[in-house]
């Protein structure tokens, strides 16, 4: 007859086997899903388990571009796997989602900005770079304080994707208002004539934000921009144009 103590040990043994089996069955993506929407303890436990996985980097590299792409990027970011920077930089070139750039940016240090920034700018010139990737690069340029330069700006303002053109305008705003970058406002002359009304609206809001000194130094250009939108076929653009013009006159 088995004693109660023996049953107890058997029970504990069964629990230990069950839990180690469960752990052995969990894949890296199971832990990655616990980063979102769970409490801190669950999240920390998931991070700890991932750190224990011996071939994690190889698995994550394989997962890029597959259905687990975003989860892999999340893991790289959360675990701060700086050693994967070069893998990510290489993969980002063909990543149509652009999300590799977001994660790359979280891994970079300011000393990397010049070298990596140059690669980013060159990729903006490649026809195969997807619009989502161009958006990510342009947004990164603001953070990394990169400058597009005149010819690249003009080329990107002719991009087929309105999101790319909008991101160029956002970067321009960042340069003017946050970096005090002294440059002409000729970008606004182009964007007020953009075929999509949303970019014309964005332009007018930027005009409304211009500091008085910049406005005074570019009075003729701004008057020209406001003259172009005065009879805009889009009702919202026309109304905003009237508002901005009135504010400018005051």
């Amino acid at each position: 007859m088995v004693s109660s103590r023996a049953w107890g040990f058997l029970g504990l043994f069964a629990v230990a086997v069950a839990s180690s089996t469960a752990q052995a069955g969990a894949h890296w993506w199971d832990y990655a899903r616990r980063f979102t929407g769970e409490n801190d303890k669950v999240r920390e436990n998931a991070i700890a388990e991932l750190r224990k996985m011996p071939d994690l980097r190889a698995e994550l590299k394989k997962a890029l571009g597959t259905t687990e792409h975003f989860l892999a990027l999340d893991v790289i970011q959360v675990l701060d796997l700086k050693g994967m920077t070069n893998d990510l930089l290489a993969f980002a070139e063909k990543d149509k989602t652009g999300y590799s750039y977001h994660v790359l940016n979280s891994l970079l240090e300011p000393k990397d900005y010049a070298r990596v920034g140059q690669i980013y700018l060159e990729r903006l010139d490649l026809p195969k770079t997807a619009p989502a990737a161009k958006m990510a690069i342009l947004d990164s340029a603001a953070r990394m304080e990169l400058t597009l330069g005149g010819p690249r700006t003009e080329r990107l303002l002719r991009d087929d994707s309105p999101e790319v053109r909008s991101s160029v305008l956002s970067l321009f705003r960042n340069e003017l208002l946050r970096r005090n970058y002294q440059r002409g406002l000729d970008v606004l002359e182009k964007t007020i004539a953009d075929p999509t009304f949303q970019i014309r609206i964005q332009t007018l809001f930027l005009v409304s934000e211009l500091p008085p000194s910049l406005r005074r130094a570019n009075l003729g250009l701004i008057d020209g921009v406001l003259a172009k939108c005065k009879n805009d076929p889009n009702v919202s653009v026309k109304a905003l144009c009237a508002t901005v013009t009135t504010e400018a006159d005051q």
């Binding site: 149509k96 999300y99 989502a132 958006m135 994707s161 999101e163």
Partner: peptide
Amino acid sequence: RFVADRYERMIFIQ
């Protein structure tokens, strides 16, 4: 500080 809906929408449109 990260806000992501513009990127998700762009992937959707692509």
